[in-house]
Simulated scan of single mutants.
Amino acid sequence: MSHIYLRSTAATALILSLTAPAYAQIEDEIIVTGSPLMRSVDEAITGVSVLSGDELSNRLASTIGETLKSEPGVSSTYFGAGASRPIIRGQGGDRVRVLTNGIGSIDASSASPDHAVAAEPAQAERIEVLRGAALLRYGSSGSGGVVNVIDGRIPTELPDGVDGAVRIGASSVDLGREAAGSLDVASGRIVLHLDGTFKESDDYRIPVSGESREQLLEEGEEIPEDYDESRRLDNSAAKSTALTGGLSYIGDTARFGFAVHKFDSDYGIPGGHAHEEGEDDEDHDEDHGDEEEEEENVTIGLDQTRVDVNGAVDLPGFIQTVQLFGGYADYTHTEFEGPGEVGTVFTNEGYEVRVEAIQRERNGWARRTRGSIP
């Protein structure tokens, strides 16, 4: 009985507090959702995840794959600090398209997991992950999903004078250092955009437990004076730079802009190729020892120069807006089997253009936008 009495008293106090007059002025509106299932039908069936703001800043990593690996249904390939690509619901490679502002990355990242994506997550304003029917907007090639990195290199809104941002980061495991900045300057209807990113990291440090030292003692081996409880993952260092300049005209009913982007990345491929044990291991090791040593020190140099255009016009009548997206890129991926020794070279020069006509809402017919570019 005492338990029921306490609950009744609490309920009575709650009712009285709700009916009491409020004398304080409430300036901020706070919305609390009590159930994670309170979503509209469109949100439930579209399959769109958006990473932006503080959430994007907290999850930001050196590559797109590592940035998104905590999203539901998303994992990533990993070939050291320089190469990582998203895997959506177990599908990767050509079945997952990676876009920059709605246009394909135009690189060779889908050909192999050790090929880096030519996109810089440090400059992203938001990253969209699309699954299901929503990905048909970007073509049929990305059957597994689409990742759209939106970085604002072509401004679509007039800033209030000067708008800028700076990011500085460091990591201890690989002595990594990072600096990124962006700037938008408006003069009348013209907006200038500038951004740049620099990232560099050394080989990863791998901690070794005390059992390894004990194991050396059990095997009767001497412990060197410079023995360290941590080891480095050879050939896992990475370095990248990105520079972008963009210019936009933003009017009342129309806007148009273009941007030039330069991306360079140099990174190592750790590990090399393991050789299976067999009867002729000794002969094989003698004949190919030098080749295996070179394979373990394979490095990759990636270089891409890209030009993007984006525009939109508002129209009266049946069509509300016509949007234009376009991109051209000159891409080179060089694999070095040793210092200055060029092995394989991938080149890709391509362009992509997409035009969209958005229907005005009329007689119940309307276009619903989910995960679209502003």
Rank of each mutant, 00 (worst) to 15 (best):
D107M: 05
D107A: 03
S109F: 04
S109W: 02
S110M: 13
S112T: 02
P113C: 06
P113F: 10
P113D: 09
D114A: 13
D114F: 15
D114M: 15
V117C: 12
A119H: 04
A119W: 01
A119K: 03
E120T: 08
P121G: 10
A122I: 06
A122N: 12
E125M: 06
E125Q: 04
R126L: 12
I127H: 06
V129I: 15
V129H: 03
V129A: 07
L130W: 06
L130H: 11
R131L: 05
R131N: 13
G132A: 15
A134T: 15
L135P: 09
L136R: 14
G139R: 02
G139A: 05
S140Y: 09
S140E: 14
S141Q: 11
G142E: 11
S143G: 15
G145I: 03
V146Q: 04
I150E: 06
I150L: 11
I150D: 02
D151W: 01
D151Y: 00
D151G: 02
R153G: 12
R153D: 09
R153W: 00
I154D: 04
E157M: 07
E157N: 05
E157Q: 09
E157F: 05
P159S: 11
P159Q: 08
D160Q: 10
G161L: 13
V162F: 07
D163A: 12
D163S: 11
A165R: 10
R167Y: 11
R167S: 15
I168K: 15
I168P: 15
G169P: 14
G169R: 14
S171F: 05
S171A: 14
S171V: 12
S171W: 06
S171R: 11
S172K: 12
S172E: 15
L175N: 14
L175Y: 12
L175E: 15
G176Q: 08
R177G: 11
R177F: 07
E178R: 12
A179E: 11
A179W: 07
A179Q: 09
G181D: 13
G181H: 08
G181P: 08
V185F: 12
A186M: 07
S187V: 06
G188H: 08
R189W: 09
I190D: 10
I190M: 09
I190Q: 10
V191P: 10
L192N: 07
L192Q: 06
H193C: 04
H193F: 02
H193I: 01
D195F: 01
G196Y: 07
G196K: 12
T197K: 05
F198H: 09
K199W: 11
K199I: 12
S201I: 13
S201R: 13
D202Q: 09
D202K: 09
D203A: 11
Y204T: 10
R205T: 08
V208F: 02
V208P: 01
V208R: 01
V208T: 05
S209W: 02
S209H: 03
S209N: 08
G210D: 15
G210T: 13
S212M: 00
R213D: 00
E214T: 05
Q215C: 00
Q215G: 04
L216P: 00
L217T: 05
G220L: 04
E221P: 02
E221G: 08
E221R: 13
D226F: 04
Y227Q: 04
R232M: 01
R232I: 00
L233H: 00
